[in-house]
Each structure stands twice: as structure tokens, then as C-alpha cells.
């Protein structure tokens, strides 16, 4: 199969070059999604089916959707409000400086990496071997799948911080979004989302796919303890279901309510409670009580799935979009201390 690997590796590189070289952003994004799919295949070749799942669902899927949605917003925005100005011509000297800098950076990085990899070939195998350590301890982890054991037991602290990272991203997303909706009245928001009625065919397909996606998500979550799968992949599937539902105009609350906030934080909250409670009996932070590991990991993963799905979905829904100027808006003057900045904002 060496030929296949050779072709796949070169395919990755060619797709990446295509992304960098294409002038048209839309084309670049499509090539990027292609790159993601090739990368998912690569993970399979590297015996990492978990990463293949995650790359397909999160890397290529959610990232691709976010990017395409952004391009759509830009297109809409540029046509309506901001036609390309001539002052946007590239600054020649700056561009040259950047090119030279990039050349130097690339050559030195390439040299360093080549030197390092070439030397690795000559080296003996490392002193430590975590593979054997993981194998020796997996019986005590409560799950039989190595990656889940690492993510939710051996190195669960990383995972806790990682979900916090996601949470920070959505907090910023909500923070930047709400400013728009507070001054806009409900009708202009409605008007925007109903701009184009989706074809009945799409709606019915979405209705067909939604339950399937949800069932798949639950399966992937449950599978995580014994084979590839887990909270992150399942969460991405839930987010994908939400995005689909929104494309098919099945109404999803876009408002930031306390219930939504509860959903967003649920995963970390339960995680923290489970992690702190053993400290009451004198055990270290993040220790699972003996015998309960499997159950608690499944509980945490379930809550994390909900939170991750909601966070990824909210990042899609809450992302700033232009408002369609509606005549109604003039009738209702914006009030409050931020009225001035709001008006200047997004027109």
C-alpha cells in the first residue's frame, strides 16, 4: 500500500498548495474542505480512526460550514454596503518585505525540520514508552478504548481546559453578537432569516436526516468507551444536525437565554463536580472513585456532548451577520447608554 500512501501524501500537499494559490476565496475554502477529507483518510492510514472521525466531523465539517457561511455574509455585505474600493490595491513594498520574510522563515523552518527528521532516523527508540504504560493501566481506567482512557482519565485535566477553551470562544461570540440584537428589534431579525424560503425538497430531506444524525451521535458517544468515538465527535454530529436544521428553516432559538447558557456550561460544570467531589474524601483532584470510573466517564461524556454540540452550533448561529436595513427600525429609536455606538455599528 506504499503507493497509496505516496499518492495520498502528495494529494495533501497539492490540495494545500491549491488553497494557498487560489485567488478566489470560495475556491480556496472548497479546496480546504477537500484537504480535510484527504486528511481524514490519512488518519485512517495512520491507524487513528478517532482522528479520522474528528477530522471529518469537526475539521472539515464544522470548519467548512463556518467558513462558507462567512463568505456568504461577506458577499451579501459587499454587494449591499461596501463595494470594493480602489484604495485596496496592495502596497508593493510591504508585499515584497512579506515575501522576503516568508522565504527566510520557510527556508529556516524547512532546514530545521529536515535536519531533525533526518537525525530521528538514526536515533534509537526513546527511553520512555507510554504505549506500554497505557496498556498496563487501562484496566483501571474504566474504559477499554485507549484514547478515551487518555482523554477522560489519565489526562482528563487537558480535556477540562480544552472544553474551557471552547467555552471562551462562545462567550466572545455571544458578547460580540448580542450587541447587534439589543438595538435591533425582533422584526428585522426575522426578516433576515426568512430572506429566502428553502425549497420543500431540502426541508423534507432535513426532516429525514435529523433523527438519523441524532441517533448516530448517541451511538458514537456510547461507542467511545470501547472503540473509536467519543464526546467530541458526537458533539460535532449534534452541531451538524443543528446547522442542517437551521438550513432547513426548522426554528432553533437564536436567543441567548439562561437555558442556553446552562447547556453551554453543563459539560464543564458536571466535569468539575465529578472532579472536585473526591477531594472531600482526601483523594486528589480529578480522581474517579474506584469502581465508578466507567459510569462517571460516560456521564461526563454525555454532558460534554451536549455542551460541545451546543457550543459549536451557537458559534454558527451567533456569528455576527449584517442586518437588513428595515424601515421599521427608524420608528423605534435605540435607547440606553450604548445607543450611540450601536447606531454607528453595523450599517
Amino acid at each position: 500500500m506504499m503507493w497509496f500512501d505516496l499518492a495520498l501524501g502528495l494529494g495533501l500537499i497539492i490540495a494545500a498548495i491549491g488553497v494557498f494559490r487560489s485567488e478566489d476565496l470560495f475556491r480556496a475554502v472548497v479546496l480546504f474542505v477537500t484537504f480535510g477529507i484527504l486528511l481524514a483518510l490519512t488518519w485512517l492510514r495512520l491507524q487513528a480512526p478517532d482522528l479520522a472521525l474528528a477530522e471529518a466531523a469537526i475539521g472539515a465539517g464544522i470548519t467548512g460550514v463556518l467558513l462558507l457561511d462567512t463568505l456568504g455574509v461577506f458577499r451579501q455585505h459587499e454587494q449591499d454596503i461596501n463595494p470594493r474600493s480602489s484604495s485596496q490595491l496592495p502596497d508593493i513594498s510591504r508585499q515584497w518585505a512579506a515575501n522576503v520574510l516568508a522565504l527566510i522563515a520557510c527556508i529556516s523552518a524547512a532546514g530545521l525540520l529536515a535536519w531533525s527528521l533526518f537525525n530521528t532516523l538514526k536515533m534509537p527508540a526513546p527511553h520512555h514508552n507510554l504505549v506500554t504504560v497505557v496498556e498496563a493501566n487501562i484496566a483501571y481506567s474504566g474504559v477499554s478504548h485507549g484514547i478515551t482512557a487518555v482523554l477522560l482519565n489519565f489526562r482528563s485535566y487537558d480535556t477540562l481546559l480544552e472544553v474551557a477553551v471552547l467555552l471562551v470562544a462562545i462567550v466572545i461570540g455571544i458578547g460580540l453578537r448580542e450587541r447587534v440584537t439589543t438595538s435591533a428589534n425582533a422584526t428585522s431579525d426575522e426578516g433576515q432569516s426568512k430572506l429566502s424560503e428553502p425549497p420543500a425538497l431540502l426541508t423534507s430531506l432535513v426532516r429525514l436526516l435529523l433523527p438519523l444524525l441524532l441517533i448516530t451521535a448517541i451511538f458514537v458517544l456510547w461507542a467511545g468507551s470501547t472503540r473509536p468515538g467519543g464526546a467530541f465527535q458526537a458533539g460535532a454530529l449534534i452541531a451538524a444536525a443543528g446547522v442542517l436544521a437551521r438550513l432547513g428553516q426548522i426554528d432553533i432559538a437564536a436567543r441567548v437565554t439562561t437555558i442556553l447558557r446552562l447547556g453551554l456550561t453543563l459539560g464543564v460544570f458536571i466535569f468539575l463536580i465529578v472532579a472536585v467531589s473526591p477531594m472531600l474524601t482526601g483523594k486528589p483532584f480529578l480522581t474517579y472513585p474506584a469502581g465508578w470510573e466507567g459510569t462517571l466517564i460516560l456521564l461526563i461524556e454525555f454532558m460534554l456532548t451536549i455542551s460541545i454540540g451546543l457550543i459549536l452550533l451557537s458559534l454558527f448561529i451567533q456569528a455576527p451577520r449584517p442586518r437588513i436595513p428595515a424601515p421599521v427600525r427608524n420608528a423605534i429609536p435605540a435607547t440606553g447608554p450604548n445607543a450611540e455606538t450601536n447606531k454607528g455599528g453595523d450599517q
Binding site: 482522528l51 462567512t70 497505557v134 487518555v150 477553551v165 470562544a169
Partner: peptide
């Protein structure tokens, strides 16, 4: 499985970074 788990974390962090950057850019 250790580097695979690390990369899984990395992929999630990368998507969070992408989403955050897109929110700011938009």
C-alpha cells in the same frame, strides 16, 4: 493512543480558534 488523544484535543482547539477568528473577522 497518547499522541492521538493530544491531536484530538488539538483539533478541537483549532476549530475553536477558527470559530473565534471568524467571529472577530466578521
Amino acid at each position: 493512543s497518547v499522541p492521538q488523544a493530544l491531536v484530538l484535543t488539538g483539533i478541537v482547539v483549532a476549530v475553536a480558534a477558527t470559530a473565534l477568528a471568524l467571529v472577530l473577522i466578521r
